[in-house]
């Protein structure tokens, strides 16, 4: 096997490194302006957050001011995988919030109902 990477292989590693920096808090690849990496990271995050807000306005309303900081933590921990859909992202965020106790789960609501206080 040749040790020289093909154009496609080279491009694959360059693009993967950039998306890892932008979407998964990876290190900025060599040669990029780190400030611009940060600008792009925030732009992509804002776009993704806007789509999730649009798809789940009730959840965004329930979370209120907590929506943005929570979403941003969720997003960095869960970069969108190839083949995933925006609706799945919105559902996964809601699930993540429930697991973190930031959104009521159906079960908790029932307990609340027959809790004596």
């Amino acid at each position: 096997m040749s040790g020289t990477p093909t154009a496609r292989e080279k491009l694959a590693s360059q693009q993967a490194a950039l998306l890892n920096a932008l979407l998964a808090n990876g290190p900025a690849p060599d040669g990029f302006d780190e400030r611009r990496i940060d600008v792009e990271r925030r732009a992509l995050l804002a776009k993704r957050r806007g789509i999730v807000r649009m798809l789940g306005p009730d959840i965004a309303d329930t979370l209120g001011d907590r929506f943005q900081p929570l979403f941003d933590v969720y997003a960095a921990e869960n970069p969108r995988r190839t083949g995933s859909r925006a609706r799945e992202d919105a559902a996964a965020f809601a699930e993540w919030c429930r697991a973190a106790g930031e959104l009521p789960t159906g079960r908790k609501a029932r307990w609340k109902f027959w809790r004596p206080n």
């Binding site: 693009q15 993967a16 979407l23 992509l44 776009k47 969108r80 190839t82």
Partner: peptide, 11 residues
């Protein structure tokens, strides 16, 4: 898309 991630944008 690259490296299994989807940017959701035109990079």
């Amino acid at each position: 898309r690259a490296g299994g991630l989807d940017s959701g944008h035109l990079m």
